[in-house]
Design a protein around this nucleic acid. Structure first.
Length: 676
RNA sequence: GGCGAGGUAGCUCAGUUGGUUAGAGCGCAUGAUUCAUAAUCAUGAGGUCGGCGGUUCAAACCCGCCUCUCGCUACCA
């Protein structure tokens, strides 16, 4: 810690095509905020940087779908996101956006510098082009028939029906999503960052010099580095983004992953003219808070970019969290399976700290975790209310009851008093140690121990009994209880800033610096205010309403899935009769080596025994399907899969969740029976 | 299939230079208590540390194989 004189903390830029949810908060913004609040309280020079990531293809598609401009889309979500963060107390020094002028300038300049230093490779390749729309088509802008599952609405990068990732050129009957025309292949030039050039440097820097990074981060980097790095394109053919600042590069923009991390630099610039100090001075420490999906960008690609530029420092640590699930399922924006922050703020007014607490206590630091409303309720009622809120309430109520709200004078301290007070610096040090090593869950638990300590102190000293015989002793006890309460407001401040503020209001005191946490922080004779409740219990009905809301989402999703595949166009009887479907009996089945999904199956079709490769290994084990009668499409064009020729297709029924089942006759029939 | 991360009490997690009876919080049980939002305090029950095998005087921790979860990746319905 002595090595550095200032700290720059960045948080992953949320993508501005939707609002933010609890997963964002738990994985990135709450831990980052805790960290910087702590450092500020210690008087350190620290900046918290954030902003919206507003470029990229999905935003242009969303805009098109809604009939608005991409700028309209990002304006809308940038404001919602920014507002949610503000209300949750994420204390950004600056929350910027990548569509801003300053970012365009910064990114342009960054690209130009690398270009002048000849750090890029220029390469041409053939890509689909829509001549009517007069533009190259990003993979997402191309639709066509999936070569595997025959879904007619597959995208150029992925078929969402069968989950296969595709190349646009794989699609059968590819169409432009803009005009519906058949696109042509046309040559286009792009700039590539030769990551392979930095491989030796990155290996040394990460694998040797940063063994202290979290295991998931270190392991992921090692995996990438061991597999070998390749040049990556930093530009795309698109008209939404930062234009490539080179003569003749019309219609090309910087690729989002190149553009977005530069957003950290632009945001810092926007905040202070002194930005270079944070980004370039050797005694500056940079920390990136991100989710696990971003590890490769922040540990490999962005450092390579910074290194190529030459004048920037590299991150000292990249504390990346795993994912937060919701009630057992993955959080999903498109499936609306999320607790949206802007909705929470409306439904649980003034309870930002409750969510901050729960998300920190249950943060996905080492593995994916599950957020449940029941756990939310339990932590609020059993921990915040019962331990923290209750202790403060006891101390304040007793002070008002016996001494009219004036801080009483402490007399001679007993050994127990001294032991109790001695715990304050011990807990403080333990919280520090955990925060500085990014163990926020543990840090919060330790901080709560101060409230536990208070409760134990009151239970053991029993002032409500002692008051009958020894008022002076009670003065001492309550003085100490109030000192603990005041220290709690400081120790909890990084985690629960709203609560800390409220507590200081009860105690009628100003903010206490981190270093000033100690046995005496409130003077004798100080008037404290009438306390209210620090936290309220959350009733079953409130929780049930949230669970019901999610349940409704699930039902709505199912309904949507059901109508998702409309009935195809009518065909005539002859077309139908072209298909030769027969019942066959599976005689052999084995897993295809080096695949996860494929089984090589031999089927007795009555006329022959043929080999069919089928992607059902995740649903059926080879041994359990032998002897099964199944439907086989006999006259499907043979296709080679993993070097094995598949002669036909076994028909499967697939439900909305992707579960597969054979289409089998309801009673045994002769092999080769035709299906009509 | 390859690679990475994880699999420790009912739940959420700590726990490495391998060393006495494996820890915490919540939940649960019992007792105490009433200042406090029936909150608190004490005590206790509860674990073959995913499975099998190996190294060692000694393994949750090291090695091998297997298995489950999550992610990345692969000529993959």
């Amino acid at each position: 810690m002595t090595k550095f004189n200032r700290t720059l903390v960045t948080t992953a830029l949320p993508y501005a095509n939707g609002p933010v949810h609890i997963g964002h908060l738990a994985g990135v913004y709450v831990p980052a905020d805790i960290y910087v609040r702590y450092m500020r309280m210690k008087g350190e020079d620290v900046l918290l940087i954030g902003g919206s990531d507003e470029h990229g293809v999905p935003i242009t598609i969303k805009a098109k779908k809604e009939g608005v401009t991409p700028q309209d889309v990002v304006d809308k979500y940038h404001n919602i996101i920014k507002d949610s963060f503000e209300k949750f107390g994420i204390s950004f020094d600056v929350y910027s956006r990548t569509s801003s002028k300053i970012h365009h300038e910064t990114a342009t300049e960054f690209f130009e510098t690398l270009n002048e230093k000849a750090e890029f490779i220029e390469k041409s390749s053939e890509q689909f082009y829509d001549s009517e729309a007069n533009q190259f088509l990003a993979d997402r802008y191309i639709t066509g028939t999936c070569p595997h599952c025959k879904n007619e609405k597959a995208y150029g990068d992925q078929c969402e029906s069968c989950g296969t990732s595709l190349n646009a050129t794989d699609l059968i009957d590819a169409r432009s999503a803009i005009t519906g025309n058949k696109p042509q292949l046309k040559e286009t030039k792009h700039w590539y960052l030769p990551l392979d050039k930095y491989e030796p440097f990155l290996k040394e820097w990460i694998l040797e010099e940063h063994k202290e990074w979290k295991p998931n981060v270190y392991g992921q980097c090692k995996s990438w580095l061991d597999n070998g790095l390749h040049p990556r394109a930093v530009t795309r053919d698109l008209n939404w983004g930062v234009p490539v600042p080179v003569e003749g590069a019309d219609g090309k923009v910087l690729y989002v992953w190149f553009d977005a991390p530069i957003g950290y630099i632009s945001a810092t610039k926007e905040h202070t003219p002194d930005w270079e100090k944070y980004w370039k001075a050797e005694d500056s420490k940079m920390v990136h808070f991100i989710g696990k999906d971003n590890i490769v960008f922040h540990c490999i690609i962005f450092p390579a970019m910074l290194k190529a530029e030459g004048s920037y420092i590299l991150p000292e640590n990249v504390p990346s969290n795993e994912f937060l699930n919701l009630e057992g399922d993955k959080i999903s924006t498109s499936r609306n399976w999320a607790v949206w922050l802007h909705e929470y703020l409306e439904e649980f007014p003034e309870k930002q700290d409750v969510l901050r607490y729960v998300l920190t206590a249950n943060a996905p630091e080492t593995k994916d975790n599950d957020f449940t409303w029941k756990d939310f309720q339990a932590r609020n009622n059993n921990e915040l209310v019962a331990i923290f809120g209750n202790f403060v309430n006891r101390a304040l109520v007793l002070t008002h009851k016996y001494f009219g709200g004036l801080v009483p004078e402490a007399g001679e301290l007993t050994d127990f008093d001294k032991e109790t007070l001695a715990q304050i610096p011990v807990l403080k040090a333990e919280v520090e140690k955990n925060l500085e090593t990014y163990h926020f869950r543990e840090a919060l638990k330790v901080a709560m121990n101060l409230a536990r300590l208070g409760n134990k102190y009151l239970a053991d000293t029993e002032p409500w009994k002692v008051i009958k015989t020894d008022e002076a002793r009670v003065k001492t006890i309550l003085n100490i209880s109030l000192q603990i309460s005041a220290n709690l407001s400081t120790l909890m401040e990084p985690f629960l800033p709203f609560t800390a503020e409220k507590l200081r209001g009860f105690l009628n005191i100003d903010r206490i610096e981190w270093a000033d946490m100690k046995d005496v922080v409130i003077p004798v004779g100080h008037q404290i205010n009438k306390p209210e409740l620090l936290f309220e219990k959350i009733e079953d009905a409130t929780i049930q309403a949230q669970v019901d809301k999610l349940e409704a989402t699930k039902v709505a999703n199912e309904l949507e899935n059901r109508v998702a595949t409309p009935v195809k166009e009518n065909i005539n009887f002859d077309d139908f009769m072209k298909m030769d479907i027969r019942i066959g009996t599976i005689t052999e089945a084995e897993k295809v080596a080096k695949t996860k999904k494929l089984l090589k199956i031999k089927v007795d079709t009555g006329v022959d025994t043929r080999t069919v490769v089928s992607g059902i290994a995740e649903h059926y084990k080879p041994e359990e399907i032998i002897g099964k009668q199944v439907s086989v499409l006999m006259n499907l064009e043979p296709r080679k899969l993993k070097g094995i020729e598949s002669q036909g297709m076994i028909l499967m029924a697939e439900d909305a969740d992707g579960k597969l089942a054979f289409v089998s006759p309801e009673k045994a029939v002769a092999a080769g029976s035709e299906v009509r």
